[in-house]
Design a protein around this nucleic acid. Structure first.
Lengths: 242, 242
DNA sequence: GGAATAGTGTCTTTGAGACATTATATC
DNA sequence: GATATAATGTCTCAAAGACACTATTCC
């Protein structure tokens, strides 16, 4: 029950952490920061940080961090997906972190000389396998953020957030394949994305790749919900890809 | 970026709020508390409260509140679903609340003389329509918690959390109908729940109702995931039921 | 018998899985 | 021409939607 003994209530420090996903060479990557300070100095950690002042909104703080780290106007997909506040997760005191998932299209390399100077895109599979030890509970946060992204591809138009303003259907398919870690049949994928009303809209132009027939370009439609959803093939006994 | 100027970092007060759902007379209800103190004195609010001490785990705090408010051993379904921390949402300072969804079977009325003395089960549709003004941003929290529950019925065995240890198939169907606010065909529902392997297990006994053929009793199986999922019928233009 | 609910069966339709074929580009 | 990718079509099968029918209880 809420009682009004204000001074006795324990306060906590609030941070935002960002799982920023993108596709690079058809593989899913996460933006990581090499820590310059203790704790975990020299290890990789998620972008993020403390609220700037007492009145800063959590979502605003996350947008601010996203903008600082990517060095770009922050119009990308951003959503909250969890809270991590176990006592002892940060040696500096009781720190509670609100985890956010961000999806961005392929970006230029993090620019030296900026806030993002020690930022680097790392392949998510290496992080999930534990090849690189991460600061705090950030491996768990990445795992949970990826699962949120995987789930949302099924029933929402989130996949287009990985793409440029216009994209081909096979580019969109590569998003699904990278995020889910599966292979999809291009013909069935084609049929599916075109059957959902106003999911993607043809823009008229085409895009030429190295060789082969040029592909038509599309932009995201207004439909945010995929009904029926895209079916995620069950992975074999939670193992690796085939 | 994380800098090590500890004293300048703003701290916040952390609370847990609980959306506790149950079925009463085949309608979905939420447990609400009439507030005894300002702010919002006399209005209804979600059960919840501040962390008890600086080292209390968030999930532990939520379990504790659930146990206090229901007056029972807290073995019910409980999960976190969001964080609400807009500046100004609480007049007492910067209060950030971690919202939890709890599902309980039909319980005895809140007992007088306990912590839950001013607790009351209210029909969720009245709260969502705004008939009863709620404290803080709790109407929004209830809306979001309900959407989480609705989504999880599709692909998980969460519906059984509303039921007693054993239940009939039509009781399970009433859970889906109440939470989704739709009517389902009993014959197709029957086929569906029995076709998912180890979703529900027959216990052998039957249950007699007022009239009609006695129904077989089931208990939850070990399967936590419904694949393929139960399909939620699209509601007509986001309106009311038919 | 009638009324009510439980449980089974069947036909239709939708949509996913598998896979052949045609179209348009580069070399 | 060969090769590569884009785009469309077809057959099959799984599963949802609609709905008829039988079973078992109480009155």
């Amino acid at each position: 029950m809420i009682e009004d003994r204000f001074r006795e209530r324990p306060s906590v420090l609030l941070t935002v952490d960002l799982v920023i996903l993108t596709l690079r060479e058809a593989k899913l990557h996460v933006l990581m920061i090499e820590r310059g300070n203790s704790p975990y100095k020299g290890m990789f950690a998620l972008p993020g940080g403390f609220l700037q002042h007492r009145e800063e909104d959590i979502f605003v703080a996350a947008r601010r961090e996203l903008s600082e780290e990517t060095g770009l106007e922050p119009n990308f997909h951003l959503e909250q997906f969890g809270v991590y506040g176990a006592p002892g997760r940060d040696t500096r005191g009781r720190v509670v972190s609100v985890a956010h998932l961000a999806i961005v299209p392929r970006l230029p390399e993090p620019a030296a000389g900026t806030d993002a100077a020690n930022a680097i895109w790392l392949p998510i599979d290496r992080l999930l396998r534990g090849e690189i030890e991460l600061a705090f509970d950030h491996q768990q946060i990445i795992t949970d953020g990826l699962e949120r992204a995987r789930a949302k591809l099924e029933y929402s138009s989130l996949a287009t957030a990985f793409c440029e303003e216009t994209f081909t259907i096979s580019e969109l398919q590569r998003v699904y394949e990278a995020v889910w870690g599966v292979q999809l049949d291009p013909r069935n994928f084609y049929r599916k994305v075109k059957s959902v009303n106003d999911f993607i809209v043809e823009v008229g132009a085409t895009k030429q790749t190295e060789n082969g027939r040029p592909a038509r370009l599309f932009r995201p439609g207004t439909e945010q919900v995929l009904y029926p959803p895209m079916v995620r093939p069950p992975r074999f006994a939670e193992g690796e890809e085939r």
